[in-house]
């Protein structure tokens, strides 16, 4: 939005007139109804569960409805260690979610493999196969950290453009919605990373949020 329009809007709101744009209204609705997938992998999942309960209450952000099916979910919180045996299932679940879809990689294991990085059966970060929007470090991260990640995601959704070159992936027909599911190879997963996604260099259009 142009700066003078923004000033006009502020001026109007001072006089008791509320104005908005379709883009703002659309993103406001989306950011306050992000439904996560009921999906936990390891100890981080316990913190994720605690975040949804009364003390931390993720419901304040419109995310209380954890959906038991990827068909109804907008967000997958990869909470915990992704083993190589589990990685294809995580990618398949992500693929089955409808657009727009977001990923929070929660904890040291999900973002890099964490303390098990050199293990024989641990994936060195889920961003090798699916595009991650928010990374949270921690082992495990406290619920406040997850809430912070969630608010970061909301802020990013709020800033997405509806039209133009920078519009997000779900509004662009040329960008894929599914990503390659890795296969079990003789020595590890094949391929070890999706070359379209990893490493996530700046400017890669497959990153949902720039």
């Amino acid at each position: 939005m142009a700066d003078d329009l923004k000033e006009l809007k502020i001026e109007l709101s001072k006089n008791g007139i509320f104005t908005t744009t379709l883009e703002e209204l659309y993103n406001w609705g989306r950011k306050n109804s992000v439904w996560p997938l009921t999906f936990g992998l390891a100890c981080c999942a316990i913190e994720m569960i605690a975040t949804t309960m009364a003390r931390y209450d993720l419901a304040r952000f419109g995310a209380e409805v954890f959906r038991p099916s990827p068909r109804q979910a907008d967000l997958i919180i990869v909470s915990g260690t992704v083993t190589k045996k589990m990685a294809p299932q995580v990618v398949r679940l992500y693929n089955q979610m409808p657009e727009p879809k977001y990923v929070i990689a929660m904890g040291a294991c999900a973002i890099s493999g964490g303390p098990f990085r050199d293990g024989y059966n641990v994936l060195k970060g889920i961003d090798r196969y699916i595009p991650v929007d928010v990374h949270i470090p921690g082992c495990p991260p406290r619920p406040e950290a997850l809430i912070h990640a969630f608010m970061t995601l909301q802020k990013k959704i709020e800033e997405q453009a509806l039209a133009g070159e920078n519009r997000p992936r779900h509004l662009r027909a040329d960008l894929p919605s599914e990503f390659e599911v890795p296969e079990f190879g003789e020595h590890g997963l094949e391929p070890p990373a999706n070359p379209e996604l990893f490493p996530a260099l700046p400017g890669n259009p497959l990153k949902v949020l720039q």
Binding site: K85, N121, F184, F198, P199
Partner: peptide, 23 residues
């Protein structure tokens, strides 16, 4: 029982090195 059926290595042997998987 832990690794998949097509896996060829024995990970707990002392001379096993996990694949670099690296970029």
């Amino acid at each position: 029982i832990l690794m998949w059926d097509g896996f060829a290595d024995f990970p707990m042997r002392k001379d096993y090195h996990p694949p670099a998987d690296g970029v």
